[in-house]
Write a protein that binds this DNA or RNA. Structure first.
Ligand SMILES: [Mn+2]
Ligand SMILES: [Mn+2]
Ligand SMILES: [Mn+2]
Ligand SMILES: [Mn+2]
Lengths: 218, 218
DNA sequence: ATCAATTTTTAGACTAATCTAAATTTTAAT
DNA sequence: ATTAAAATTTAGATTAGTCTAAAAATTGAT
C-alpha cells in the first residue's frame, strides 16, 4: 500500500497535529523526522498527490481522512507489537521501541488481528499509551501530568510522555512504574522540583521528571 | 546491516547453489528473483564489493562465508516466524510464507533469540524444513522424495519440496499432512502415478505430487 | 574452426528518497 | 511601510534498485 517512509511521515504528522492544530510546519516535521526541510517539502508533495494529506505551500500540512486512518493503523501495529515484546518475549519497556518501529510496517491484516487476539485485545501499550482497535477507535484516558498536581494531592502513575530509553531507565532505577501511587509532599516554587511519596519512601524529582509522567487522579 | 534486497538475493543464491554448485548463473538468479538479468548483474557487483559473494564476469556467483552466514540467518528468521504464525497465531501452513518474507528482514538479535526460546527452540518449520540454530547449524534430515519409493515400501511424510499455496492446499484437501504414514500400493510405469495407502484409505496421486513430498523411511 | 544462438554485461534512463545551496515567501520588528 | 530574519520551496545532485535496448562474450552445433 504505502511505503515505509510514507507511513513514518504520516505517523509523525499525526503526533504533531496535537501541537499544530492549524497545520504542521515543515520545520517541525523535519525535526521530528530527523531530516531536512527540503526533504520534507518533497515528501509532503508526494503525500498530497496520494491524497494522504492536505497541503498548500507555506501553510503547513494536515492529514486527510485516509492519511489519519493510515497513521492510526500504523500506531495500532506499533503498540500491539510493543505489548507482544514485553508480555511474551521478555523485553523491558525501554527496549521495545526500536524493534516496534520496524514491525509496525509489516503488511498483513490477519497477522495483526490474530496478534491482537493472541494478546487478549490489550487497551494500553507498555508505556500507557492507548491501542486503537481494529476500527481505529482508541480510548482517550483522562490523565494529567504529575507536574500539574498540587501539594497534598495524589494519583496513580498511568503513562509516560517521554518514552526514551534514558527516561524509562531513570524510572526503573527509582522504582517508578505504571500502576504505582504517587503523592505530592512538597513542591519547590523556584525550580518546580517535587518531594513525592512512592513505595512508602520519599523521593525528590526534578520538573523534567514530573512533566513527563502521566497521572490519573481518583 | 544489509538491505532487504541484498538479503533476498543472498537467500536466493543460497537456495540455487544446490542446483548450481559451480556458480549460480545470472539467468537462474533473475528467474528466482523475478527480475531482469541486467538487474542481477548490477546487484551481484554490489554484493561482490561488500564481500558477500565471489563473482567473476560470465562465471556465475558463489556465496562467501559472510554471504552464506547472512543467508542462513535470514532463513533462520523466516522459518522461526513461520512456526510462530502457525503455532501461536492460527495461520495455516499455506498462509505463512508471504508474511514471513517480510518478517525475516526485521533486525534485532534479541527479538529472534527470544522468539526461538518462546517457541521452544523448534527444529523444523511448518513445511518440514530445518531451522538453523543461533550458530547457523541445521540438521540435514535423511529424507527422500515419495517418487523414489518402490511398490511395497512405506514411510512417514516429513516435508514438502514445493511449498506453494496451491500444492499445500491440495495436500490439505486430500488429508496428506506431515507425520502421516504413506505406503505405495501400485506404481504406473507409464506416467509414474501412484496408488498409495493413507489414513486407511487408498489414494491415486500423480508424479507431480509424489515428486514434491519428502518421506522418511524407517 | 566457424558461426549462430544464447547468455551476460554495459549504457543510458527512471523512480523514491534523500542532500546542499540558492531562491523565494512569510513573519515580525522597527 | 520597510526590511531583516526565519521559514519554506526550488534547483540540481546523489544513491539504491530497477528497466530496456544494445554490445560483447560464451556456448554448442555443424
Ligand atoms: Mn514506541
Ligand atoms: Mn516506522
Ligand atoms: Mn517460507
Ligand atoms: Mn525476503
Amino acid at each position: 500500500m504505502f511505503s515505509l517512509s510514507e507511513e513514518n511521515y504520516l505517523k509523525a504528522i499525526f503526533h504533531l497535529e496535537r501541537s499544530f492544530p492549524t497545520g504542521v510546519s515543515t520545520n517541525a516535521l523535519a525535526e521530528e523526522m530527523n531530516t531536512k526541510a527540503s526533504s520534507v517539502t518533497d515528501m509532503v508533495k508526494r503525500l498530497s498527490e496520494k491524497k494522504l494529506v492536505n497541503y498548500k505551500k507555506y501553510q503547513g500540512v494536515k492529514l486527510s481522512k485516509l492519511g489519519r486512518d493510515t497513521a492510526v493503523e500504523v500506531i495500532r501495529k506499533h503498540r500491539l507489537w510493543e505489548v507482544f515484546l514485553v508480555e511474551k518475549l521478555n523485553f523491558a519497556w525501554d527496549e521495545v521501541h526500536e524493534v516496534a518501529e520496524q514491525l509496525e510496517h509489516i503488511k498483513s491484516e490477519k497477522l495483526i488481528s490474530e496478534l491482537d487476539k493472541f494478546l487478549g485485545f490489550p487497551k494500553k501499550d507498555p508505556h500507557g499509551d492507548p491501542i486503537p482497535d481494529a476500527k481505529g477507535n482508541m480510548v482517550i484516558a483522562n490523565k494529567i501530568l504529575l507536574s500539574e498536581l498540587q501539594v497534598g494531592e495524589s494519583g496513580i502513575c498511568v503513562g509516560v510522555k517521554d518514552s526514551s530509553t534514558e527516561f524509562l531507565q531513570y524510572l526503573d532505577k527509582n522504582d517508578i512504574a505504571l500502576g504505582k501511587t504517587i503523592s505530592i509532599l512538597e513542591k519547590e516554587s523556584f525550580d518546580q522540583s517535587m518531594l513525592i511519596k512512592l513505595n512508602g519512601k520519599e523521593l525528590k524529582i526534578s520538573s523534567l521528571i514530573s512533566s513527563n509522567l502521566y497521572i490519573k487522579t481518583s
